[in-house]
Write a protein that binds this DNA or RNA. Structure first.
Length: 260
DNA sequence: ATGGTAGCCGTGCTA
């Protein structure tokens, strides 16, 4: 079972790349972020033609998440609970039936939070607090759970080419990193980190200032696994080659393979 | 080096 996350940075602008990658990598479940599309405009037909079921939570212009799955959805839930005033499309949960039981997969797009001295950073921290509460409740189910997405968090210095350059950035604030660690402390496993703690594994390279050419990247796209999912983790992969494609997203897909 | 690029949608906002 191959489960992927990819911040696509505009699904309509990226549809050719997405279809090419789906054919090449053949993932079973794909979590997309920043689809930047309303649900009605999401290019679902060519994706469905490749054998995927499609569930979206979009909004106009920015944000928006989706899950593509070769398995049928048993349940779909949109939105992270805990703030009725929050209208940003950043969270969608799908439940699937596998040979070994239920599998829960979330596609999340955590707020960027910049600039730090703004209500945007407070929104980010509030969102993370809600995510922590949601995760604690879901962990009580003792099911395989994959929380996949763009966390907009650099967990450790080794997750940036030049961590010092991010000291004033919301992605690398102590509060952001602490909130990420709280997910780990609840029992969630950072899939990539658990396979290797080698530095220099990045998932995002800015379009600006030749970041890709200089390998000036950061690791901010994460798949967090419940114990029941982590027990089945067999491999991980960062699909770095897609960053060199024509019209690339600034993020690349990250894939985990779970046994059975 | 306080710029630079990209998407969406409309001439600004978000990242």
């Amino acid at each position: 079972m191959k489960i992927a996350t990819w911040n696509i940075n505009g699904v309509k602008a990226r549809i050719d790349n997405l279809l090419h990658w789906l054919r090449e990598a053949e993932p079973d479940i794909v979590c997309l972020q920043e689809i930047k599309s309303v649900d009605e405009q999401f290019p679902r037909e060519p994706i469905e033609s490749l054998g995927y079921h499609v569930e979206t939570s979009g909004q106009k212009g920015f944000n928006g998440v989706a899950i593509l799955s070769k398995l049928r959805f048993d349940e779909v839930t949109r939105g992270l609970p805990g703030n009725d005033a929050d209208e940003q499309a950043r969270f969608i949960e799908g439940v699937f039936s596998t040979k070994t039981g239920a599998l829960r997969v979330v596609s999340l797009y955590l707020p960027n939070g910049n600039p730090v001295a703004s209500e945007k950073f407070a929104y980010k921290l509030g969102w993370m607090e809600r995510l922590e509460g949601w995760t604690r409740a879901r962990l009580a189910l003792e099911e395989p759970l994959v929380l996949a997405g763009d966390y907009n968090i650099i967990p450790e210095p080794a997750d940036a080419k030049n961590a010092d350059a991010w000291l004033d950035d919301a992605l690398y604030q102590p509060e952001s990193r602490q909130a990420f660690r709280r997910l780990t402390n609840l029992g969630m496993t950072d899939a990539l980190r658990s396979v290797s703690d080698q530095p220099g594994v990045y998932t995002f390279w800015d379009y600006q200032a030749g970041a890709w050419q200089k390998n000036n990247g950061i690791r901010i796209d994460h798949l967090m696994l419940s114990p029941e999912a982590a027990d089945r983790l067999s491999s991980t992969s960062v699909q770095k080659h897609t960053r060199a494609w024509e019209k690339p997203s600034d993020h690349v897909p990250v894939v985990v393979e779970l046994a059975a």
